[in-house]
Design a protein around this nucleic acid. Structure first.
Length: 852
RNA sequence: GCCCGCGUGGUGGAAUGGUAGACACAGGAGACUUAAAAUCUCUAGGCCGGAAGGCCGUGCCGGUUCGAAUCCGGCCGCGGGUACCA
C-alpha cells in the first residue's frame, strides 16, 4: 500500500492537463461559453495565501463549468502600474520596470504549483506597452467622444519634496517622507465625465440580480441621487447673489446663516483685503483632503461680514460665514444653515452664537430646540406653524415637494436633481503609469497624439543616464528628450503631457482585453461578442465601489466608442465578493515595544501560546501583514502538504464571503482527510470484484444525495457546505460493506465531486480506478431524481414553539391524519391535560406546532 | 463623521422563518501497539440531575410571529469603503 504523496501526483497531473491543452480557451459555437474571472493581482512579488483562496474559488467554478460542457475562459494577468514600484525604486535603487517584471516572473512561478485551470497564453501585465498603448487609443477615442474633460482639481502638495502626495502618503497632515505640513494645490487635470452617466449607472443597478445586494446598495449610496432645490440669496451689498443647494428646503423658515466653502468665489473675493479670513482659509487649505478627515474635523467658521436677505421673510438678514465643512465639489459650494433641524448646523450655531429658529414642531408639541436638532425622517409627520408653503400637519417629504413647487412658482429657486458622485480625476503626477497621450502646444493648445504614434512608451532612462528615482517629483517632468516633442497638429516643438493615468483606468477594461489579448485594437469584435460578459467575477469587497463603478462606466464608454457591443453595458453578470485570509498574531513586549513572533517559533498548548517557554499574547484573526510576522507563504504550505491541501483548507473552513483564519491545525486536518480518501481509493482498488456486498442501494442513495448537495453548493458559492457533505459521504463510504462495483462507482463519483477543489488527488483516484481519460474532462455527475425520493419523513413536534418530541410518518400522509397522530402523542396529551389545543399548525413535511 | 457588512459551543462554522450547534479542529474515553507515532471507534453547548427529564442558550435591549440565529427598531463591538493604496 502506497502513501499519499502530493508532490509526485501534483506534478504528474499538471503536466497531463497542460499536454491535453485543457485550459486553453477556445471559441466553440457548439458549446455555451463561460467566462470566469478573479480580480487580477498587483505584482507585489509574493503570492499570498489570500490570493490562493481567491483563485481557488475561481478555479472551482471554472473546473465545474468545464465538467458541465462549457467553453471556459479563465485568464490571469497583472495589475502592474502603481506606487509600490516607485517606492521600491526610491527605497533601494533600481527601476520600477525591472522590479515589476521580476515580481511578475516570480509570481507566475508561484502560481504554477497551485494547479489552477488558467489559460496562461492570454497573460498580460498592464505595464506592457502593448496593453497601455491600447489604453491610450481608448483614451483618444473617449476624448473625441466627449467623455473626457479638463478642469482644476485640488491635490496634496508636499512643499519640501515639491511633489504631489497620495492620500495614503499624508500622515496626520504631514508628508510621509519630508514630514512637512501638506498643502492643497490646484492643478488642471483630466477627468472622465462619469457624472454624465450617474443616472444610467444608478438605474442599471436594479438589473444586477446576481450581484450582492450590499454592493448595489453601496454603489447606490455612493452615486447618491437626491432631489433638492437651488435657492438664490440676494446680498445686501449688491454683490453677486449666493446660490445654495439644499435637499431639505422644508427647513427654509429656520434658515439663519449661510456657509460657503473656503474655496468659494465669495471667500476668494474677500481674501485679499481681510487677513483674518485669509488666515482661516489658509488653515482650511492645510486640512486633510479625505472625506473622512473633513467630516471628523472640528466644525469651524468665520463671519465674512456679508449679509443676505431671507428669500421669503424679507425682513430677516442672514450672515454669510466661511465653513470648513462645506465642500466646493458638491452642489453649489454654499449651503444655508438651519440649526433647528440639522445637528451639525445646530452645533455650529451654538458655538458661534447664531440664531436658532424652528421651521416646524412635532404635532402637538411646541418646544424650542435645545442641544438636539429636530430631524424628522421624510415619512414623519410634522406640524408647521406659519410655513410659507402652507400651515398644518404634513410629512416631511410632502413639505419638501410643496416647498420646491412654491419656490419655483415664485421664481425664487429651482428644483434640481443632484448627485453625490464626482467626476473621476485620472491625472497622476507620477512616473509608473500609463502616459496620457496628449501634447501641449503653445499655439494649438491641448492636442491629442496621433494614433499611429501609439504607444507613447515610458522612457526607461533619462536620456543617456539612468533615472534617479530618489529625487522627489515626476521624472517625466524633467526628462530632456521625452518631454519635448513636435506638436502633432502644427509640428512646432511642444511639451508632452507628463501626467500619467490613475491605475484604476488600467483595471477598468482589462476584462475585455482578455478576450483578445494580442489584438491590434483595444478589443476585437468577434471575440468580445463571443466571450463577453464576464459570467462570474470574483474579488474582494474592498472593491465594491471604486473599481466596480469605474469598470461599469468604462464598459459604457467603450460601447460609445465602438469597442464593445451594447450587450456589454454591464460587463459583470454575476459578482461574488470573498473575505480575507487572516492569521493570529503572536505578540510579546520587550523594553516597552511590541515584538511579533513567527508562527514557527510558537508552541501551542491548551489554547495558550509559548515562545521558548514564555507565554505570549495571541491576537486572533488579524489581517496578514509583513510587519506583524503573520504572513502565510503558500509555497511553504505546498511543499509541506501539497496544493490540494492548501486549496481544500481555504475553501472548507469558512463561508467564502467571510474572512477565514489560517491555522496550522486546520491545514493538518485537511491533509489528513485527503490521505483518508487516498487510502480509501487503495482499499477499494484492492477489493475482490466478485465478492458479494451488502447495502449497495443505501450507498448509492447517499451518493446521489451528495451529488445534489455538492452541485448546489458549488453553484451557489457554498463551498464550505459542499465540503462538509463530502466529508460526510467519505465517512459513509469508508464504513460501507457494499459490492466492489458500487464502491468503485462511489469513490469515482467522490473524486469527481472533489475535483474542482482538489483536482490532483481526484485525477489520481480516477486513474487508479481505471477511469477513462482525464477526470478534469469527464462530465459532471448528475443526481438521479429517483434515488433522492424519501418515502417517510420525521416531523418534530413543538409545544408552544419548543421541540418536545418527533414522529415519523409516510411522506404522503394527509394533514388531518397527521393531526390525529399528533393529538395522540404522549407529550402532547400531557401538555393538553385533557383540554383542546388553542391552535394546531402542521407544516407538511417540516414541523408540527401545538399551541396550548 | 457618513455609507455597507459581520457577531452562533473551547475553535472554524451549519441551519436565511420551522429539530440551533451539521461537518471539522482542539479536548475526553477506548481499541490496536512492548511503547510511541499513525489509524480506527465512541463522546462532547451550559447548568441541575444517578437517570428519566427539566431549565438556560445564537453580542445586548425591545418588538412582530403559532414559531426568530434568521424579519423589524434601538444599542455595543469588530471589519470594509470614504474618491491619489490596489
Amino acid at each position: 500500500m502506497s502513501r499519499y504523496d502530493p508532490a509526485t501526483i501534483e506534478a504528474r497531473w499538471q503536466k497531463a492537463w497542460a499536454e491535453a491543452g485543457l485550459f486553453t480557451a477556445k471559441r466553440d459555437p457548439s458549446k455555451p461559453k463561460y467566462y470566469v474571472l478573479e480580480m487580477f493581482p498587483y505584482p507585489s512579488g509574493r503570492l499570498h495565501i489570500g490570493h490562493v483562496r481567491n483563485y481557488a474559488m475561481g478555479d472551482v467554478i471554472a473546473r465545474y463549468k468545464i465538467a458541465t460542457g462549457h467553453a471556459v475562459l479563465h485568464p490571469m494577468g497583472f495589475d502592474a502600474f502603481g506606487m509600490p514600484a516607485e517606492n521600491a525604486a526610491m527605497a533601494s535603487g533600481g527601476h520600477p520596470k525591472d522590479w515589476t517584471y521580476a515580481n511578475i516572473d516570480a509570481m507566475v512561478e508561484q502560481f504554477k504549483p497551485l494547479g489552477l485551470s488558467l489559460d496562461w497564453s492570454r497573460m498580460f501585465a498592464t505595464c506592457d506597452p502593448e496593453y497601455y498603448g491600447q489604453q491610450q487609443a481608448l483614451f483618444l477615442d473617449m476624448l473625441e467622444a466627449g467623455l473626457i474633460d479638463r478642469k482644476p482639481a485640488v491635490v496634496n502638495w508636499d512643499p519640501v519634496d515639491m511633489t504631489v502626495l497620495a492620500n495614503e502618503q499624508v500622515i496626520d497632515g504631514k508628508g510621509w517622507r519630508s514630514g512637512a505640513e501638506v498643502e492643497k494645490r490646484e492643478l488642471t487635470q483630466w477627468f472622465f465625465k462619469i457624472t454624465d452617466m450617474a443616472e444610467e449607472l444608478l438605474d442599471a443597478l436594479g438589473d444586477l440580480d446576481d450581484w450582492p445586494a450590499k454592493v448595489r446598495l453601496m454603489q447606490e449610496n455612493w452615486i447618491g441621487r437626491s432631489r433638492g432645490i437651488e435657492i438664490r440669496f440676494e446680498r445686501t451689498d449688491g454683490g453677486a447673489p449666493i446660490l445654495c443647494y439644499s435637499t431639505r428646503p422644508d427647513t427654509m423658515r429656520g434658515a439663519s446663516f449661510i456657509a460657503v466653502a473656503p474655496d468659494h468665489p465669495v471667500a476668494k473675493e474677500l481674501e485679499a483685503n481681510r487677513p483674518d479670513l485669509a488666515a482661516f482659509i489658509d488653515e482650511c487649505r492645510k486640512m486633510d483632503t479625505t472625506e473622512a478627515a473633513m467630516e471628523k474635523a472640528e466644525k469651524k467658521g468665520i463671519d465674512t461680514g456679508i449679509r443676505v436677505k431671507h428669500p421669503v421673510y424679507a425682513d430677516r438678514e442672514l450672515p454669510v460665514w466661511i465653513g470648513n465643512f462645506v465642500l466646493m465639489d458638491y452642489g453649489t459650494g454654499a449651503v444655508f444653515g438651519c440649526p433647528a433641524h440639522d445637528q451639525r448646523d445646530l452645533d455650529f450655531a451654538r458655538k458661534y452664537d447664531l440664531h436658532v429658529q424652528n421651521a416646524f414642531y412635532m404635532p402637538g408639541q411646541v418646544a424650542e430646540v435645545g442641544t438636539e436638532a429636530l430631524v424628522p425622517a421624510k415619512s414623519e409627520v410634522v406640524s408647521f406653524i406659519d410655513h410659507f408653503a402652507g400651515v398644518g400637519e404634513v410629512t416631511s417629504a410632502e413639505a419638501i415637494d410643496a416647498t420646491i413647487d412654491w419656490f419655483e412658482d415664485k421664481g425664487l429657486g429651482k428644483g434640481q436633481v443632484q448627485f453625490r458622485l464626482r467626476d473621476w480625476g485620472l491625472s497622476r503626477q507620477r512616473y509608473w503609469g500609463c502616459p496620457i497621450p496628449v501634447v501641449h502646444c503653445a499655439d494649438c493648445g491641448v492636442v491629442p497624439e496621433k494614433k499611429e504614434n501609439l504607444p507613447i512608451e515610458l522612457p526607461y532612462d533619462n536620456g543617456n543616464e539612468p533615472i534617479d528615482f530618489s529625487i522627489p517629483g515626476n521624472p517625466l517632468d524633467r526628462h530632456p528628450t521625452w518631454r519635448d516633442v513636435p506638436c502633432p497638429a502644427c509640428g512646432k516643438m511642444a511639451k508632452r503631457e507628463t501626467d500619467t493615468m490613475d491605475t484604476f483606468v488600467d483595471s477598468s477594461w482589462y476584462y475585455t482585453r482578455f478576450t483578445a489579448p494580442r489584438a491590434e485594437t483595444p478589443t476585437q469584435a468577434d471575440d468580445v461578442a463571443y466571450w463577453m460578459n464576464v459570467d462570474q467575477y470574483i474579488g474582494g469587497i474592498e472593491h465594491a465601489i471604486l473599481h466596480l463603478l469605474y469598470s461599469r462606466f468604462f464598459a459604457r464608454a467603450m460601447i460609445k466608442t465602438g469597442h464593445l457591443p451594447e450587450s456589454a453595458a454591464e460587463p459583470f453578470d454575476a459578482l461574488f465578493t470573498q473575505g480575507m485570509v487572516t492569521h493570529a498574531i503572536y505578540k510579546s513586549t520587550k523594553d516597552g515595544r511590541p515584538v511579533y513572533h513567527y508562527p514557527e517559533e510558537v508552541e501551542l498548548k491548551d489554547g495558550k501560546a509559548f515562545v521558548n517557554g514564555t507565554e505570549v499574547e495571541v491576537v486572533p484573526s488579524a489581517k496578514m501583514s509583513k510587519s506583524k510576522n503573520n504572513v502565510v507563504d503558500p509555497l511553504a504550505i505546498i511543499s509541506q502538504y501539497g496544493a490540494d491541501t492548501a486549496r481544500w483548507f481555504v475553501l472548507s473552513d469558512s463561508p467564502p464571503e467571510r474572512d477565514v483564519e489560517w491555522t496550522a491545525s486546520g491545514a493538518e486536518a485537511a491533509n489528513k482527510h485527503l490521505a483518508r480518501v487516498w487510502n480509501l481509493c487503495d482499499r477499494i482498488a484492492a477489493m475482490d470484484p466478485a465478492a458479494k456486498g451488502q447495502g449497495d442501494e443505501d450507498l448509492l442513495r447517499e451518493m446521489h444525495k451528495t451529488i445534489r448537495d455538492v452541485t448546489v453548493g458549488v453553484e451557489s458559492f457554498g463551498f464550505n457546505a459542499a465540503i462538509a457533505k463530502l466529508y460526510a459521504f467519505t465517512g459513509v463510504l469508508s464504513k460501507s460493506k457494499a459490492s466492489h462495483k458500487a464502491q468503485r462507482e462511489a469513490v469515482m463519483t467522490l473524486a469527481q465531486l472533489m475535483a474542482p477543489m482538489t483536482p490532483h488527488l481526484a485525477e489520481d483516484v480516477w486513474h487508479h480506478q481505471g477511469g477513462e481519460g482525464l477526470c478534469a474532462a469527464a462530465p459532471w455527475p448528475v443526481a438521479d431524481e429517483a434515488m433522492l425520493v424519501e418515502d417517510s419523513v420525521t416531523l418534530p413536534i413543538q409545544i408552544n414553539g419548543k421541540r418536545r418530541d418527533e414522529i415519523t410518518v409516510p411522506k404522503a400522509m394527509p394533514k388531518d391524519e397527521v393531526e390525529k397522530l399528533v393529538l395522540g402523542n404522549d407529550a402532547v396529551m400531557r401538555a393538553l391535560d385533557g383540554g383542546q389545543p388553542k391552535k394546531l399548525i402542521v407544516v407538511p413535511g417540516r414541523i408540527v406546532n401545538v399551541v396550548v
